[in-house]
Computed example of a mutant assay.
Amino acid sequence: MKGHVVLSHGLESGPDGTKVSALAALAECRGWRATRMDYRDLDARGLIACIAPRVERLAAAAAVDEAPTLLVGSSMGAFVSGLASLRRPPLALFLMAVPLRIDGYAQPFDAANVPTTIVHGWNDELCPAADVTGLARARQATVILVPDSHRLASQMAFLAHQFDYFLAAVERNPTATSQRGT
Rank of each mutant, 00 (worst) to 15 (best):
V119N: 02
C127Q: 12
V98N: 00
F158W: 06
D124C: 04
R87F: 12
Q162A: 15
R36Q: 07
L95T: 03
G121D: 03
A60Q: 14
H120D: 02
E56R: 15
L135M: 04
A169Q: 08
Q155L: 07
A22L: 05
P68E: 15
A49L: 11
A141F: 04
Y39A: 01
F166L: 06
L58K: 09
R45T: 13
P174S: 12
L7H: 08
V72A: 02
F163A: 01
L7S: 09
A59M: 11
A60P: 00
A169L: 04
R45M: 10
A138Q: 09
L83M: 08
G121S: 08
V146M: 05
P99F: 05
L126C: 03
T177N: 08
T142C: 10
L152C: 06
A49D: 14
A59N: 09
G3R: 12
D16N: 14
R33T: 13
A67T: 09
A168W: 01
L42G: 04
A27F: 10
V55N: 08
R57N: 07
E125K: 10
Q179L: 13
E56W: 13
G82I: 05
L58H: 11
C50Y: 09
C127V: 13
I118E: 01
R151Q: 11
H9W: 03
F166Y: 08
E28T: 06
R180D: 02
A84M: 07
L135W: 10
D43T: 12
R101N: 06
A130E: 14
K2N: 13
A84W: 10
L135D: 01
G31Q: 02
H161T: 15
S149W: 13
A176N: 03
R151C: 03
Q107K: 12
L58D: 09
L11Y: 15
R30K: 10
Q107H: 09
R101G: 00
V5W: 09
C50A: 15
G46P: 00
E28I: 02
P89M: 11
S8N: 04
L152D: 09
D148R: 11
G17E: 06
Y105L: 02
V72Y: 07
A160Y: 07
A153L: 08
A61S: 12
M37N: 01
S8D: 03
A60F: 12
G46I: 12
G73S: 08
A44T: 13
H150D: 05
L95V: 03
R172F: 11
L47D: 05
A34W: 04
G73F: 12
L42F: 11
G134Y: 06
T69L: 02
A169T: 13
Q155P: 01
A44K: 15
D43V: 14
W122G: 01
L135K: 02
M76H: 15
P174E: 05
P15L: 08
G31V: 00
D41P: 00
V98F: 09
T133L: 01
V72S: 03
R36N: 02
Y165L: 10
T182M: 05
V6A: 05
V55Q: 08
L86S: 05
D124A: 06
S8Q: 08
P68F: 09
V80G: 04
D43C: 05
E171K: 05
L145S: 07
W122R: 14
L7F: 08
Q155F: 14
T18E: 14
H161C: 07
P90C: 13
V132W: 14
G104H: 02
V119R: 02
R137D: 08
V80R: 02
S85K: 12
R139C: 03
K19N: 04
L152R: 13
R151L: 01
D43M: 03
F79C: 00
R54E: 15
